[in-house]
């Protein structure tokens, strides 16, 4: 899932400063399950902003609504009237959600209420960890299902490095050495020899280094063919 966390209330107040009507938009997908921007959080944020701005002596009208998925335009039609009525839309979606609202409603002014953090999973209640860097060329088959791009501090393709200390990374004793995990995993599967094969330099053009990415599936496109 996409993991995000809320911006501090003071920052949200600054972002909506000057607006008379504010619409807080939650998202029912990733940020709901990481407790950052679902229905409940949208309600709490809007109530908190109403009270905070009232205490400041300049009360703002703050309402909230949550869509099933902010990152697809079709799901945004349902809030069209509310967006039109608002001076500012405070999105509690990830960065994709913020941009989807801004693209779908060009007249709206949309600001982010969350900081989008990473692609990850919950490892225990209240703890989320990064697992994928969306590098565009998955290596998990050769590393036993443990991603060195996302989980090794240096994103080494051949590891571990000299900074691996008793299974932990030199940058922080709380960070597991991804390559220690990989070695342990491959050993347990009897496939340690596979790591003797040196991984060549990765094509980072498929990652962010190649600029903004785009996938086009001609078989799925709705195109009108000319005669």
């Amino acid at each position: 899932m996409i993991v995000a966390e809320q911006k501090p209330l003071a920052e949200m107040k600054t972002l909506i400063n000057g607006a008379e009507n504010v619409l807080v938009v939650g998202c029912g997908t990733c940020v709901t399950v990481c407790f950052a921007g679902g229905t409940r959080e949208a309600d709490i944020v809007s109530t908190s902003l109403r009270m905070a701005t009232k205490l400041d002596g300049s009360p703002q009208q703050v309402t909230h609504s949550t869509v099933q998925r902010q990152c697809e335009w079709e799901y945004l039609d349902i809030i069209e009237e509310q967006v039109k009525a608002a001076d500012i839309v405070l999105s509690l979606g990830c960065g994709i959600g913020v941009q989807a609202i801004a693209e779908h409603f060009p007249d709206a002014w949309v600001v982010p209420g969350l900081n989008t953090s990473f692609l990850g999973l919950p490892t225990e209640h209240g703890v989320w960890e990064e697992r994928c860097a969306a590098c565009g060329e998955c290596l998990l088959a050769v590393t036993g299902g443990i991603c060195p791009v996302a989980r090794c501090s240096k994103s080494l393709l051949n590891g571990p490095c000299g900074g691996s200390e008793n299974g932990h990374c030199e940058i922080d004793p709380d960070v597991a050495c991804a390559w220690q995990l990989i070695v342990d995993r491959m050993s347990s599967k009897g496939k340690l020899d596979a790591l003797l094969e040196i991984q060549p330099p990765k094509n980072w053009q498929n990652s962010r280094d190649g600029g903004p990415r785009k996938i086009v599936r001609q078989d799925l496109r709705l195109v009108e063919f000319e005669d």
Partner: peptide, 11 residues
Amino acid sequence: LDARYALRAFE
């Protein structure tokens, strides 16, 4: 009890 109930009460 939900935090929302408490906030709404104060509001």
